[in-house]
Each structure stands twice: as C-alpha cells, then as structure tokens.
Design a protein around this nucleic acid. Sequence first.
DNA 1: TTTCGCAATAATATCTGATATTTTTTGCTA
DNA 2: TAGCAAAAAATATCAGATATTATTGCGAAA
Lengths: 217, 217
Amino acid sequence: MAKAPSTVGASTYQRIKKDIIFGKLEPGSKLKLDTLKDRYAASLSTLRETLNRLASEGFVEAPEQRGFLVTPVSREDLIEIAELRVLLECYALELSVRNGDTDWEGNLVAAHHKLHLTEQQLLRGDESEKETWKRYDWEFHQAVISACNSRNLLSAHSLIYDKYLRYQMLVLTYRGAEAVQEHKDMFDAALARDARKAKSLLEAHIRNGLEHTLNAM
Amino acid sequence: MAKAPSTVGASTYQRIKKDIIFGKLEPGSKLKLDTLKDRYAASLSTLRETLNRLASEGFVEAPEQRGFLVTPVSREDLIEIAELRVLLECYALELSVRNGDTDWEGNLVAAHHKLHLTEQQLLRGDESEKETWKRYDWEFHQAVISACNSRNLLSAHSLIYDKYLRYQMLVLTYRGAEAVQEHKDMFDAALARDARKAKSLLEAHIRNGLEHTLNAM
DNA sequence: TTTCGCAATAATATCTGATATTTTTTGCTA
DNA sequence: TAGCAAAAAATATCAGATATTATTGCGAAA
C-alpha cells in the first residue's frame, strides 16, 4: 500500500502532494520555504528538491526567482484535464481489455468489490471514509487499465488522474448512486471484454463527473 | 528562442536534459554527483534539484538511496512512446485544425518553410545542422498542434516528443526524402483543414519514423 | 488622492562543508 | 568459488553563510 517511504525526501514528497490534492494546501497559495520547513520537518534542500519535482509534475508552480506556489485551479484547466483523462484512460482501457489475462480479471473483480462496498457506505451517509473511497476509486480505475502494457501510458494517466482528483476533492460533494451504477456497468462491460461499450461508459463517467464538479465550483 | 536562463538551476536543467536527449549522457549511465559538479559547474544542491526534476519527467531514474542514472532505453519503451505520441499528437492536431485562426496558419507556414529549407540541405548531404534540423522539426510539429487550446495537452505532448527525439538521436540516421514528403503532405492537409487526412498522415509519419528507428537500433 | 521612487525588509537561489547511513568494493576465508 | 566482513565510496540530509532579487512601506511629487 505504498507506505513507509524510507527517505525523508520521498516522504515529504508524498505528504506535500497529498496535501495539495486534498486541498490542505490551497490552490494559488504561496509555499514559503521557512513555513514548510516547520510543517514538514525537512531541511531546505530536501524541500526544494521535493518542490522541484512537484513543479515538473504541475502541482506546483515555480516562477523564476519567486519561490513556489500551489498551482491555481480554473474551470478551463479542469476541462482540459478531464478531456485528457478521457483520451488516455479510454485508450488504455481498450488495450487492457484486449490484453487482460486471468490475473487481470481477478484483480479487477477484487478492486470493484472493494470500491462497491465503500460506495454503499457512502450512500448510507457515512462520510467518514472519503479518503478511503478515493483510494478505492483509484485502484478500480487503475485495475481496469492495468493490462494495457505500457508503463509510459500508465504513468501519464496516473498524473492526470491525480490532477482530476484534486478538483473533485475541491468541491467535496459525492455524486452518489449514479456514479455507483456507472462503475458497475463499466466493470461488467470490461469483464465481458466489450471494449467499445466499456469505453463509452467510461467516457460518460468522466464527463458526468466533470459536469458535476463544474457545477459545484 | 528560450535562451539565457537567468538562474543556475534553469540553465543546468536545460543542459543536462539536452545532453541526455542528444546522447552525450549515455542511457543507463550513472550520474555521479561529484562528476556532474565539475561538468556543469553547479553545486550539489542545485544539481539534486535538477536531477529530481528530470527524474519526475522520466529522463533520469532515481532508485532510492542509490543516486541517479540516465533512464535506459529499450525497444519496448520506444514503441510505447511512439504510440503515445500518435495518440496525443493526432488528438491535438484534430483540435488544432478545427480551432486554428489566421495567426496559426501564418505560424504554420513559417515553421514548415524553415523545416523544409533545412531538410533540403540535409538531402544535399550537409549534415552539419542536425541539431538545427531537429529544432525546426519540433517547431513544425508544435506549430501544427499549437491551436489545440489545451496547455495540459501541449505539455504532455512536449514531454513525449522529447523522449521520442532521444531515440531518434540515438540512431543518428536521417530518413531522407520520404520524411520530407510526409511533412509536406501533412502541412498541406492541415492548411486545407482536412483533419482526417492530416491525422492519418501524421500517424503514418510517426509510425514510419518508429520503424526506421527500430531497424537502426 | 493617486502615483512614483527609494530605502528597509523579507525571501530566494546558490554554495560550502559536516554527518549519519547505505551501497559498493575489496580482500580474505572456508 | 561462494560467502562474508571490513574498508572505501556515495548518498541523503542538514545547517549555516552570502549575494541577489522581490516586496513592502513611506514620503515626495503630480
């Protein structure tokens, strides 16, 4: 479960990234090195390494000679990200559904099961597990495309997924039963190896999420 | 032309990246900090910042606790990158051809002109300008998709283009007249706003380049 | 009052050097 | 030759120090 990073650098990286995605570090806010030093208990050099990395991933901006700030958000940016996610994830899905073996199926079933359980909890009003839910959402989408056989594609997707996720966390509202159904349908189509159908369901799923998030912004 | 970066960090970044892409730093080779310190005249901290950035872009690997190395190359990786480039660039091309205004056309004409001139030189056997040629190749492909209206897409494309470029530089052979023709046809189709045709030409262009590079590896 | 310019203050980028850890190498033994 | 331990080399991390650059606040000029 990707825990316990051995080095200070890796751990700071994960924590800051998470804080950006989950909104604890507000979009557009200045990242003053001295402040971060206390907050994350890391040295200046380590922090700068981390921020450089996040800058190249696009979670942080680094205008020359002016330090760092959390990348601002905007409707246009969200739309771009959602469209890019559609492009990458649908493509990966197609490859994955074509290539997936028995292991892939097993993993997919497990991932959907866990996601589904958590979604049921949320529907019942138990909102205590939002972070868990998001992890399972990630694991599910990841499982679907995991057999695409392209590390490069997976890593591009992972980046764009995280950026999309930040916007979802920003508005903090749960789409509810519809999303549950969309996951279920997509899951079924993928298992049935119906790539075309799965793709169109996925596309709709992402577009609906986009719509929902835009309305809530 | 993106020159004269004001800070040491920015300049080191550009230089190392360039050296990786153009093969001066060999794939898989260890990047020892002390050595780099001399070679790039930057301090340890600055170097580590730079390498972290390059690591997150995928030009460098950073196995924990073991420093840095130039990302190795492989046939599979090249294929993945080429396919991803097809996906991103074709998509961006479609958007761009639909949205492009007069400025876009003007810029495209200029870019193709410069590329074409340099290609003529290369055909005549003047290989002295390989780096220039590649810059114009980039400017041309960039110009085609520049009106796609998505910063996120453009930056993803830029990254993948550079990775693809490294493989081309690795084999160092020029594809010649065919490639020139492909550029020309694509240029014409784009100007004529025939997105479908331009896309299929672009796809073939990239696939042919891939084939060529694979054979030369 | 608004604007401009400059001094004071705060923050950044960069470097050097030190330390604790971890990897890698070397060399010896079984 | 396999295997292990000491020695050497590198790494990750930190704590200052300095020069440079950005920001802020205030008084003078319009």
